[in-house]
Design a protein around this nucleic acid. Structure first.
Lengths: 184, 184
DNA sequence: TATTGTTATACTCTATAACTATA
DNA sequence: TATAGTTATAGAGTATAACAATA
C-alpha cells in the first residue's frame, strides 16, 4: 500500500531531509530579506558578492559561473540585471579577447555594505544561535569535506550535452554550488 | 578596500557555505535526474511524494503547502500540472466544503515507483557514500534539531502581509521547507 | 471575519540551442 | 576545434492581489 519502500535507510533519509529543509528554509528567508533590504534576489546578491570579493581586478564571467548554480546564459542574464542597476560593469579582458571581466561599481559596493549585515544576522539567528560552537564545528567539518569532494568535478561551464547517467548528473551538478560571503 | 568585514565569524560562514552549497549541489542533481527519469521537477516530485505518502485518504492542499517551499497559489499551479498529467486528482473535502483533497492516481503511484530508486541512489551516492555512519548520525541529530525549531513557526499558508522584520522573514520561511521521502 | 483555494496579471527566470569571435 | 560570452525564443515558475465560497 502506498509508495514502495525506499532502498535507503530511514536514518539516511532523515539526514537528507534535515539538510535539505534547513538549507531551504534559511535560503528562502535570506531571499526575502535581501529583496526587502536591497532589492536583489539571493542569487543576484551572491553574484555581486563574488564580484565584490575580487576587488578592483574584477572577475571573469566563466569563473563566476563555475562557482554558482547558474548556466552561462543564466549568468549573462543576471549580470545584465546587475549592470542595468549600475552595480556592476563589464569590460573586455585585456589578455584574452574572448573573455569579459565583471567589475563592481561604487554603488555595488554600497549595496553590499547595506545588505551584508542583515544577511549575516539572519543566518546567525536562524542557524548559529541554535547550535553550540562544538556542534557548529562538527557539522562544518563533515559537510565541508563532502562539499569539497562534490566540487572536484567537471565544471558546469565546460559541460557538453550527452546522454547522462546519474553519476554524470551528479558530477555536473557539482559545479552548481551557491556562493556565500567569505570572511577572509 | 573591498567588501566590509562581516560581523560573523569565519567558522560560521564556512558552516553556512558548506550547508548551503552541499544542499544545492545535491538538489540540482536530483532535479536533473528526475526530469530525465520521470519528467517532473524536484519540486513537483516532492509534492507528488507528499500526496502519495497520504495513501488513499489523500491530503489537503493547505496541508501540503505548509510543508513545502510554495505559496498556495504556487501549489495550485504545480498540482494543476500534476493533474494535467493525470498523476493526481483533486476532490472537494467531505467535511469542509472550502477544502480540497489531492489524491494520487495509479499513474502517479507508478511514477513514484519509477522515480524513487534513482532519487534515493543519487542522494546516497552524492552524500552518504562519503560519510561514515557515525558522521551521518551526528549531522542528522544536529540539523534535525535546528529544522524542528525552524518549523515551529507560523504557517506560510496563514501568512498575512505586513511590514517584515528579519525575524518575521525567518519565521515565515520556516514553513518553506522541502519535502523528502520518508521511509516509514 | 477568517480561512480555503483559485484566478489573473505581470514579471522573472530558465532551458536550449544557435551564433559570433577569439585561442 | 574548443572556448568565452551573448542572444533569441519559448516556456516555466513566481509574486501579488483580488476573488468566491464556506466556516
Amino acid at each position: 500500500m502506498g509508495i514502495p519502500e525506499p532502498s535507503i535507510s530511514a536514518d539516511e533519509m532523515r539526514a537528507w531531509a534535515a539538510l535539505f529543509e534547513t538549507s531551504n528554509i534559511v535560503q528562502y528567508a535570506a531571499d526575502r530579506n535581501l529583496r526587502d533590504s536591497v532589492g536583489l534576489t539571493l542569487a543576484q546578491f551572491e553574484i555581486l558578492l563574488r564580484i565584490g570579493e575580487a576587488g578592483t581586478v574584477g572577475r571573469r564571467m566563466t569563473d563566476i559561473a563555475d562557482s554558482l548554480t547558474v548556466s552561462r546564459s543564466g549568468l549573462t542574464y543576471q549580470v545584465g540585471q546587475l549592470e542595468r542597476k549600475e552595480l556592476v560593469l563589464r569590460q573586455p579582458a585585456p589578455d584574452d579577447d574572448r573573455s569579459v571581466i565583471a567589475h563592481i561599481t561604487p554603488a555595488g559596493l554600497d549595496l553590499l555594505r547595506t545588505g551584508i549585515p542583515g544577511y549575516v544576522d539572519l543566518v546567525r539567528e536562524m542557524l548559529f544561535d541554535r547550535l553550540s560552537h562544538a556542534d557548529l564545528m562538527t557539522v562544518t567539518e563533515i559537510l565541508d569535506d563532502v562539499r569539497r569532494q562534490l566540487k572536484e568535478q567537471p565544471k558546469r561551464s565546460t559541460y557538453r550535452r550527452a546522454r547522462r547517467s546519474v553519476a554524470q548528473a551528479g558530477a555536473d551538478a557539482a559545479a552548481a554550488a551557491g556562493a556565500v560571503p567569505t570572511t577572509e
